[in-house]
Structure formats: C-alpha cells, structure tokens
Nucleic acid binder design. Structure first.
Length: 680
DNA sequence: TTTATTAAAGTTTTT
DNA sequence: CTTTAATAAA
C-alpha cells in the first residue's frame, strides 16, 4: 500500500524567520506598490510595471522574499527574456541573500527547455549530444532542402509565381509554431492562398523536420515544442518538474507567445503559483508570435489572480516621461495607467533636430557625444544611439571610428556568428554529434575543391557510417574518415583533419575537455586554413583565442556548446573584449529593451524608417506596435534625449530622396521639446 | 558536372 | 556590407 504524504505548504505570507531575512527590510526598501507585489500570497499574480518603475527590483525582491520565507532555491523558476537578465537578477538577489540562490533555475524559455531536454534526451527521442541549429544553420539547411527536393521549381512551373526563399519559409514555419496556428492559415495570411504553395511549403516542412531528426539537432523553436512533447508523452517527467518548481516567475510577460505560455501552464500544473511581470505598452515582439493581449487577458484567464500596478518612474526626467506618455497615448489597445516621475525638472529638455543628411546626423551624434564626455564628464558607457534597423547605424559607426570615439554595436555582427567562429565551433559540434549535417557541411566545404555537390556525396557516406556506429564516438576518426573519397587536392587536408580529430579522444575513448579539443583544432588544422583564407588573419585569430578562453570555462564540450547556441546578441557581444571597455552603445530598439542610459540619441526618425514602412502598411495594429517600440526607445533615457532625423536620404542610383519626419514626432508636445536648428 | 570568380542588387525587429 | 546570380574555368 502506498501512502500519500503531503509536505505542508511553505508559508509565504508569514513573517521572515531566517536570520538573513531579518536583515532585509522589505517595507522600507520598496515603495508601497512594489511592496504589495513582492509580498503577494501564493497563487497567480499579475504585476503591471511601467517603464523604469523598478520592475527588476520588484522581481529581485520577490525572489529574495520567497527565499527568506523558507522556500528552497531549487523550488523557484525564474523565466527571463535574455540569459543576461537572469544572471543580473540572480546577482542582485545574491547581494541581498549571499549564497542562497544555488539550485535556483533561471534563464530564457529556450535555455530552460534545453536544460530539461538534455536531462531526458533519450525520452525525447534525441541523444545527449544533440546539437542546436542557430538561425543561420537552419536557414542553410532549409535552402538545401528547397534545392534538393526540387519543390520550388515544381511549384514555380505550376503557378508561374516565385516560390519563397528559405528565410521566408523559415519565418512562416516559425510563426506557425510560435502562435500555434496551422501552417495553412499562416501561409494564406502571410504569403499566398494558392494550394500549390501551401502544398509545397508543407512538403518542405516535412523534409526539414526529417532532416533535423536525422541530424540529431534542434532549432530554436524545437526546444519548446519538443519539451512540450516530452511532457505530453511522459507525464511522470512533467510531474517531476511540477513538483520541483513550486514558484514560477516570468519577466517581460507582454512578449511571451502562445507556445511559451503553454510551457508556463504545463509547469505551473496544480499549484499555479505563477507571478508574471510586464508592461503592455512595451510589447514589441508580435512578429515572433507574442500577443500583448496575453497580458491584458491574464485576469480573465485566471480569475483568482491578484493584480498589482507599479506606476512610479524612477528613471527619467519629467520631461522625457511626459513625452513618452504622449507618444503612446494614440494607441487604442492598452491598459490605462499613469506613470509619475519621481524626479525634479531637468536642466536639459529633450532635443529635436533635423539634419541635412545621414552623414550630418552622424556628425551631430559624434560631436555631441564628445562634448558631453569632455565637458560634462559623462562617461561614454552612459550614452547610447538607438535605431529601428541595424543598417541605419552604419553612418554613425563610420563617424565614431573616424573621431576615435569607442563604441560597441550590440547587434549586427555578433561575435559568435562571424564566419571564422562558426567554422571553428563546427568542429566541436561534429565531435559531440556525428550526425550534425550543418557542422559537417561547413567543415567539408572548407576543403579545396569541395562544394555543395561533393559535400552531399560525402555526407551520404558519413551518415551511413555514423549510424552504423550508433552515436558512439569512433575509436579513431582517421580510420572512420579514410573510407570517404575526397577530390585529389583535398586529400592531404582531409587526412590532416582525421589526425587532428583523433586528438579529441582520451585513451578511454571519451572526449577531451574543451581546451584540449580546441587547441587541437587550432594548431592541427584551422590556423592554417584561416591564414590561407583571409587577409585579416591577425584579428580573426584573436577572435578565436578569445573564443577558446570562453570555452575554457566549461568542463565538457557538451556544456560549452549548449550554452553557446543560446547566447543572444547583447550577451554574445560581451564575450568580445572590446565591449568591456568604456564605450558608447549602438543598439536596435529591440535589443535596448530593459536597458537604460543617461543620454540617448534616437536616429532616423523619418516616416519610412520609424515607423518602418512595411509595419505601417500592416494597418493599425502594425502601427500600434511601432508606436510601442517608439515608447520603449524614449523611456530608455534618464537625463538627456535627442530625437534626430535626416531631411535627405542619398541613394546611389535614384538620386537624393527627401524624407518626411516621422508621424510620431507630430504628436509630441512642443513645450516639452527644445528644437535645435543646425548650422554649418 | 562542379567549383571559383566576378558582378550586381538589396537590406526590420531575434530567442 | 553581404548575399545571390551569372559566367568562366577546371
């Protein structure tokens, strides 16, 4: 006879009992609204926190509060938008309650799901060494499928219209997955209602799915999908996690999409202790399936939910806040809330300036930054340039370089996405997952005389051998590889590669630690390839050295790779040594979410760029999202804000084009702005 | 048939 | 600047 023995519910509402808890005075360190949210009883809670209102602080103290009330760290799950946000929050909790966060799970949905899948790889139909396809990997896999299958050609012949390219198909599949809509609906809505198209994309999707399974690899969306499948097929696994995560906290809830919502619901299970924090006005990821109505409908979906509002803004000057409030006002769909500034009036009103050209805009930004730095002593790291799209930062980058102002770009060229770093890590990926087609392709195409055709033939052979081996490491890579034919001029390199990969193995037949493996790759083969391939060998080899330093932190190649693929833009940039120095930040508005600076320049505020023309064409909902994005941009600034746009856009072939100022600028109250006329 | 080279054109936002 | 398309060469 088994017996159910229930542990008493942790008393969350009870006064602090541990000695550490006594040291945190929650009442005085938080304002009334924050305090109410932090001390919320178990159950569902929605915290609506305006921009700059101490959202992170609230979440941090909530975690501390739970810990202080004898909730064990391993019973808490903290879901954040970036891994960096998770790390920072834990550091802050650790400052409040030193050494008590061990065992707490935190990170993005993707990293948490990845962690779960690694633990139950076999149950999920994978092997422990499964690899992750980043956006580029899955794109090239997809285009390979389109070419190989001939589906594109066939559909084009049948319809006379162009078949979508790999990135478009990928976008369609991903959107369908994230919104849980049917593929058919999404194609109709986003592309074409033609049955030939729908059928074609379906076919591609199937082949793509099959290829991923054969390759023992997952793309980003798969991490969530496969976790949910795992829970579905193995209820005891789900139960284990439901039991573990007694308290779930979700940051940036306004940007969660239906599939992420499913993950939350699955984990919350019976206890339902879920606190979600967000701001509907800052929902900017609808194109990734997020729906801000999620946050608005939360109280309806969970009738017992407590709702807390946090409305005091500690970040911005009243002028900036007033501007932001006015900017978002035209949006019909929003929670009404009044953000009050806790600060006194500023000495510098927000500035609006029209520049003649993008170059002049860049000169203005650079010159003003240098002034603020040299005359007012504002550190460079306290200044940022924000824009709607990466390419809009090019002029500024050029000018900053010319004038010797140090800067970091948090988007665009991401350290881990540069060709040489991806090449380098492909060796590692292949070592832990012999079936990784993307990695194989990448490596093999580095050989002289090997292109797509030869690579495909080699892959067929390789896969057969790997399958025969059954996911174990070969005893000798060189033997394993010797049976595969390569073109005459690649022969020497191919052999060398085999010998190099032999060095990956320990005498016991397991994989060496990351540093040993990476040294082999570098010394054994990649150094020479890189030297032959690129002129700027020096800077690229420094990147590789930096990458090896990153890898040295991990005990196994497994750990290293699973972390690697999940690093997002801003955090990946931090691995780049240049970014740690004192430097100005250039960032897309999306990536600036959750960050703040003393001085913010928003550039390219013209009517085709911001709002983005394509988004504006989507109608009112598209425009509202652009407006929220503008709101996010404005509320990043603490003290000084510069709104800039060029009057003229010089294009190479059509000649100069006049620019309309952004329609968002028209609704701003003039009395809160200072217009600067720019002389030359 | 496959690879290497050269010319041309086009760019939202990202875990 | 980066990716794709067209052409030359092996």
């Amino acid at each position: 006879m088994s017996r159910l023995y229930t542990l008493r519910k942790q008393a969350v509402g009870a006064p602090p009992t541990t000695p550490q808890a006594a040291e945190i005075d929650f009442r005085t360190e938080l304002n009334d609204q924050q305090y109410a949210a932090v001390t919320s009883p178990p159950g569902q809670a929605l915290v609506l926190a305006g921009a700059g209102s101490g959202k992170t602080r609230t979440l941090t103290y909530r975690v501390a509060y739970l810990l202080a009330n004898a909730v064990a760290a391993q019973n808490i799950l903290l879901l954040t938008f970036t891994n960096k946000a998770a790390r920072e929050m834990l550091e802050r909790v650790d400052a409040l309650l030193p050494g008590q966060t061990g065992g707490l799970w935190s990170g993005t949905f993707h990293s948490i799901c990845n962690r779960i899948l690694r633990r139950h790889a076999t149950l999920a139909g994978l092997t422990t060494g499964f690899t992750i396809l980043d956006a580029e990997d899955s794109k090239s896999l997809m285009s390979k499928i389109v070419k190989e299958s001939g589906v594109g050609k066939r559909v084009e012949n049948a319809t006379g219209e162009k078949f979508p390219k790999a990135p478009v198909i990928q976008g369609i599949l991903s959107y369908a997955t994230n919104t849980k809509k049917s593929l058919e609906d999404v194609i109709r809505e986003k592309y074409s209602p033609d049955p030939d198209f729908i059928h074609g994309v379906h076919e591609i999707a199937k082949l793509y799915e099959k290829k991923k399974r054969t390759a023992n690899s997952l793309d980003f969306d798969d991490m969530l999908v496969r976790t949910l499948e795992l829970f579905d097929e193995h209820p005891h696994v789900l139960a284990e996690y439901q039991y573990q995560f007694q308290f779930i906290l979700v940051d940036e809830y306004q940007d969660t999409n239906p599939i992420q919502s499913d993950v939350i619901n699955a984990l919350a299970g019976q206890h339902g202790n879920v606190m979600v924090v967000g701001d509907d006005a800052q929902s900017i990821y609808s194109w990734r399936g997020a729906d801000f109505r999620n946050i608005i409908s939360f109280p309806e979906r969970f009738p017992d939910a407590q709702v807390y509002k946090i409305e005091t803004n500690y970040r911005s000057t009243p002028e900036i806040l007033h501007l932001a409030n006015e900017a978002i006002r035209p949006n019909q769909k929003q929670f009404k809330k009044t953000l009050r500034s806790s600060r006194g009036p500023s000495k510098q009103k927000p500035v609006l300036a029209a520049l003649y050209s993008p170059q002049e805009q860049a000169i203005f930004v650079t010159q003003r930054m240098r002034e603020l730095h040299e005359e007012e002593g504002i550190p460079y790291r306290e200044m940022a340039v924000l824009y709607r799209a990466h390419f809009q930062s090019m002029d500024v980058q050029l000018q900053l370089t010319q004038d010797g102002v140090p800067f970091t770009v948090t988007s665009g060229l991401k350290f881990f996405e540069t060709a040489h770093i991806k090449d380098f890590s492909a060796f590692l990926k292949l070592a832990i997952n012999l079936r990784d087609e993307s990695a194989f392709d990448r490596i093999v195409k580095l050989l002289p005389g090997v292109g797509a055709g030869t690579a495909a033939k080699m892959w067929a052979l390789w896969l057969m051998k790997a399958t025969k081996l059954g996911d174990k490491l070969p005893e000798s890579f060189s033997n394993f590889m010797s049976g595969i034919k390569v073109p005459a001029r690649a022969e020497k390199d191919w052999q060398q590669l085999g010998w190099t990969m032999d060095e990956f193995l320990t005498p016991e037949g397991t994989l060496q630690p990351p540093m040993v493996v990476m040294k082999s790759i570098w010394e054994g083969i990649y150094k020479d390839w890189l030297k032959a391939e690129h002129e700027n060998f020096e800077s690229r080899s420094q990147d590789v050295t930096q990458f090896m330093r990153f890898g040295d932190r991990f005990e196994t190649v497994f750990d290293m790779l699973s972390e690697l693929s999940l690093l997002s833009g801003p955090e990946a940039a931090e691995e780049n040594p240049a970014s740690r120095e004192e430097s100005v930040v250039l960032s897309s508005v999306h990536q600036a979410k959750g960050l703040e600076w003393n001085v913010v320049f928003i550039i390219w505020l013209t009517d085709t760029m911001f709002p983005n023309m394509r988004a504006a064409e989507e109608g009112e909902s598209g425009l509202e999202e652009e407006r929220r994005l503008f709101y996010v941009a404005l509320t990043r600034a603490r003290d000084q804000l510069y709104l800039l746009y060029p009057r003229m856009n010089p294009k190479s072939y059509t000649g100069d084009v006049f620019q309309q100022p952004s329609r968002f600028l028209e609704t701003l109250p003039r009395e809160s702005l200072e217009e600067w006329r720019i002389g030359r």
